[in-house]
Design a protein around this nucleic acid. Structure first.
Lengths: 127, 127
DNA sequence: CAGTATCCGAGAGGATACTG
DNA sequence: CAGTATCCTCTCGGATACTG
């Protein structure tokens, strides 16, 4: 297999697609909340801080469609719906952890860079 | 340090922030284009297929602000501006490669899942 | 060449009200 | 409880015209 595959345009767009899929505001947080086991709808809503009903519904539906999450309905009253991470979902969460490490490692550095950049811009605008 | 740090709410939001920062349509493609060396504005524009002037400008400015890219102006006529990946930018591109691998490995699987889900939904809508 | 300025449409995401 | 439906706003991103 060609080692340059990950440099090709197609591969690159593939990553971009995955990233924009996974890089929305809630997907990763929901996946992470599901790592330790199944959750029900309102349980997730409580655990993922700040998410609206609407966005939780959308996020779960997309995750289900992609095969990252399994939805199991227990037909009781009131109805109980359990969401569980599939193996594919777990593998995503592992990869996300890699990114989490990068993020936490460089977060401060990036924040510094931004401050420096912004204050420099401020100075230029005034000068 | 607590090993569960990557599970904490704060860490999780950190990842989300990085992901949404990096998960836009162009950032990764620009970074990848810069991996092999410095480029000039229109060179990048040619290399990153489909990007508009506006978005290239915005993307580069944000990358510069975050300290991922360095901007060097050669004051000639016409002016030449060279963009170069910083060490931080390189480390990002390495992490992106991890994700690229995950993406290429599971892309087909995800596509299958989507088709299955959609056809099932179609069937339900008709039934 | 390397941008800036402006306008526009599409979609993300929030708030709220309603339903089986 | 677990959603759906609706409305509204704001940002992303494309197109185009203009500038030093």
């Amino acid at each position: 297999m060609d080692v340059t595959a990950t440099h090709s345009e197609a591969a690159c767009r593939g990553v971009s697609e995955i990233l924009s899929r996974v890089g929305d505001k809630w997907t990763i947080q929901v996946v992470v909340a599901l790592r330790s086991g199944s959750r029900r709808f309102n349980g997730l809503k409580r655990e993922v801080n700040g998410i609206s009903q609407q966005m939780l519904t959308r996020t779960l539906k997309t995750l289900e469609r992609d095969g990252m999450v399994e939805r199991a309905v227990r037909d009781t009253t009131p109805p109980q719906v359990e969401y569980t991470l599939t193996p594919l979902g777990h593998s995503l969460s592992d990869t996300a952890r890699q990114l989490a490490q990068w993020a936490t490692q460089h977060r401060d550095r990036i924040a510094e860079n931004r401050e420096r950049y912004d204050s420099r811009r401020m100075a230029e605008d005034e000068g």
